[in-house]
């Protein structure tokens, strides 16, 4: 007995998302693909393969959803330069939106670090940093209850770290909203012109480097007994690491879909 929902159903769902053709044509393609995949799996099953393995073999022989969709797009006339440009703008817009939102999230984490470990952990100056009397007066004017120049400077820097990052996050969320609207409008016109995993590859590299750099630097400060300001770096690193993990998952899934088992 064959399962009601299986690998072929999942494959068809993914193919439906990848196809950049009108609805009627997409329906025909999906029906033909389903017939082909089920016929192949049934044949392989009759030859003795377990059903799930037969489904997987049929899918591997058919080609990845992206490969098949791109061939349909290519046979329909290929990807024009404007389409390529539109997809590039969408991909970079997504990365920009995620990046700015991540900065915003790191601001919230920095705020949490400040509440938990003190503002100096997030935005304290390194040893030996001094300010002119005029600058100190400025800091104390904004934070009269700080009591001294160093504490007032730290409170000022902390507010900047948190508020500026959160402001960047708001910009990021707006960018993601714009990206979502544009993507909805552009979905039918997309041609799969960009290489598979384009955004995921850039995201993995960008956020992987950011996570390693920020956590590495913050960790070294802690290791060498200089905790002031380490929280500012680590808060960014933690968020970068989370975003890296999301892109890495997408990257690996893309590789699995592109390379036959």
């Amino acid at each position: 007995m064959t399962p009601e929902l299986g690998l072929i159903d999942e494959y068809l769902d993914r193919l439906a998302l990848e196809l950049r053709v009108d609805g009627r044509r997409a329906r025909r393609i999906l029906l033909e693909a389903e017939d082909h995949l089920r016929a192949t799996a049934q044949q392989l099953g009759a030859d003795g393969l377990p059903w799930r393995e037969a489904e997987q073999r049929a899918i591997d022989r058919f080609g990845s959803p992206r490969t098949v969709a791109r061939r349909f797009a290519a046979e329909a006339g290929g990807a024009s330069l404007p389409r390529l440009g539109a997809e590039l703008v969408l991909a970079l817009g997504l990365l920009f939106g995620i990046g700015m939102s991540a900065i915003g999230a790191s601001g919230l984490v920095a705020g949490g670090f400040g509440a938990a470990f003190g503002k100096s952990f997030v935005a304290g100056d390194a040893n030996g940093v001094t300010y002119t009397p005029a600058r100190c007066a400025d800091f104390l004017e904004y934070f009269p209850r700080a009591g001294n120049c160093e504490a007032a400077a730290t409170a000022h820097h902390f507010d900047e770290v948190v508020l500026y990052r959160v402001a960047a996050g708001v910009v990021g969320l707006l960018a993601l909203g714009g990206w979502w609207l544009l993507r909805r409008g552009a979905k039918r016109r997309r041609s799969g012109a960009l290489p598979e995993g384009f955004s995921a590859t850039i995201g993995v590299a960008l956020f992987g480097l950011a996570a390693a750099g920020l956590i590495g630097l913050g960790g070294m400060q802690l290791l060498f007994g200089q905790p002031a300001g380490a929280g500012g770096l680590i808060s960014g690193g933690v968020i970068a690491l989370a975003v890296f993990a999301g892109f890495a998952r997408s990257f690996v899934r893309g590789l699995s879909a592109a390379v036959p088992a």
């Binding site: 080609g63 046979e75 329909a76």
Partner: peptide, 12 residues
């Protein structure tokens, strides 16, 4: 060749 890539040729 990937079997799914024959269908685009048939459609064309």
């Amino acid at each position: 060749l990937p079997e799914g890539t024959v269908y685009p040729a048939l459609h064309r």
